[in-house]
Nucleic acid binder design. Structure first.
Lengths: 242, 242
DNA sequence: CTTCGTGCGGCACTCGGTGCCGGTTCATTC
DNA sequence: GAATGAACCGGCACCGAGTGCCGCACGAAG
């Protein structure tokens, strides 16, 4: 019910890991996080206590099982960046990866959201998770703006702004119970910060976007007012990139 | 050596609390944070183990003894805001309170900075501290921009930007070992984000600022290019506002 | 002198987390 | 087919953070 998004090549046998996650969330939703001990989880999962800490370095980690993978995806996505594209557009696309991960399992994401809202310890742990994303985005912007005046300051502030905008939209979607279009709000929010931090202001087009491949040429048909970076992403995905 | 800034009215007898902080930092600097147990601290301080947790809810809290007070100061500072002043200017002034707290004890701040850089657990705890500041700033901006389009989004993003800019300058100062003028960098960074987020762009004056009181009239003499909010702060302090 | 509130110390206990060891399984190798 | 070795797993024993509870000492008020 609450399995993480793990692809076969990375982990061939995550059976025990998944069963631990399932058992943990079942108990967390029943009695609450703090009222559930690790012994309760391993007993329900039918495994040894020692095995829990083999798969999760701490009790909090079982609540955020998919963020490590997502952070890797983001790192690779940024590493695959070209010098030609707008750094802010790239960073917004990276933030979109996180939203996509949440949107893949709406019920799981909403359950976790309600847990983290109630338990202070989980909220604190979530901050460290978010911080890793922000650091990754900031490192990327820092290298891209290395020659720029106040490059590191701009990078840190812009990364924080992107993360804040993403989380704003994410929480909006989570509060709605995972109904509604996940990317609608996050696109608006990301475009908002992109427009204020991107040096050039492209008056782009959009709304719904459609792309047709033809060799190396990509034809994009879209409505005016679509976020520019969303158009860029459409072109990139059409060219077969991540 | 490492006492927190506690004023007499709030805590008349923080003798044991201060001795615990001193003992803790002495041991932290000698053997490191994780190599020091709470028993070691209370033994050195000559008090009972139970008393430690009376003054500090967790072992991490002894590293950040002054942030509770600073958060209160910030909350009051924002609550004393008038509808007439620019919200972003006010928020930058609030962030400056944090920098001021760090600058009051440079050696202590630098020691703590080196500790938090090495110990992952302290870094995670620091995030929750920073998050409280960001939430406080965000709440203030949210109410000030309640009628504005995308007010909450703007508030969240702007608060994150202010915090990021402040932390950027703060770390810069801490890395320098607490030498140099503390407010020089933070003023530049805060003015940077204020200029991008404040609706109106005041071409203010400054550099060094001097104010003379004369009844209710405040005469400010300053150089061009001084951050506007710094001028505002000067006027406020001249009018006798915390 | 008594009494009551407060602050402190000293248990005893729970629970998260780690190191270590022994057993099982499975694939490799002769 | 049997021996070998690497992984994986379970079961301790142990450490340290954090909590609840009780008893004691001290000082102020009656």
């Amino acid at each position: 019910m609450a399995a993480a998004a793990t692809n076969p090549p990375t982990s061939p046998k995550p059976a025990m890991r998944d069963s631990l996650i399932a058992a943990a969330f079942q108990l967390f939703l029943e009695r609450g996080y703090e009222q559930t001990t690790v012994d309760d989880i391993v007993t329900l999962a039918g495994v040894g206590r020692r095995s829990f800490f083999r798969y999760f370095p701490s009790k909090e980690d079982v609540v955020f099982p998919d963020h490590d993978q997502c952070l890797d995806d983001m790192t690779r996505f940024l590493a695959a960046s070209a010098d030609s594209d707008d750094p802010m557009v790239r960073v917004c696309g990276a933030a979109r990866l996180v939203m996509r991960m949440y949107a893949e399992n709406p019920t799981f994401s909403v359950q976790r959201y309600r847990l983290t809202r109630e338990v202070a310890g989980l909220r604190a742990y979530e901050l460290s998770v978010v911080w890793r994303y922000e650091k990754t985005l900031g490192d990327y912007l820092r290298t891209r703006w290395a020659d720029r005046r106040d490059g590191t300051l701009r990078a840190n502030v812009a990364a924080a702004a992107v993360v804040a905008a993403h989380n704003h939209a994410l929480r909006h979607w989570l509060r709605s119970g995972g109904e509604g279009e996940p990317f609608e709000e996050v696109d608006r929010a990301l475009e908002f910060v992109r427009a204020t931090w991107s040096p050039d202001a492209p008056g782009a087009a959009a709304g719904d976007t459609a792309a047709e491949e033809d060799g190396d040429v990509v034809v994009v048909i879209t409505k005016r007012s679509t976020p520019m970076w969303r158009v860029v992403r459409e072109v990139e995905s059409s060219l077969g990139e991540g």
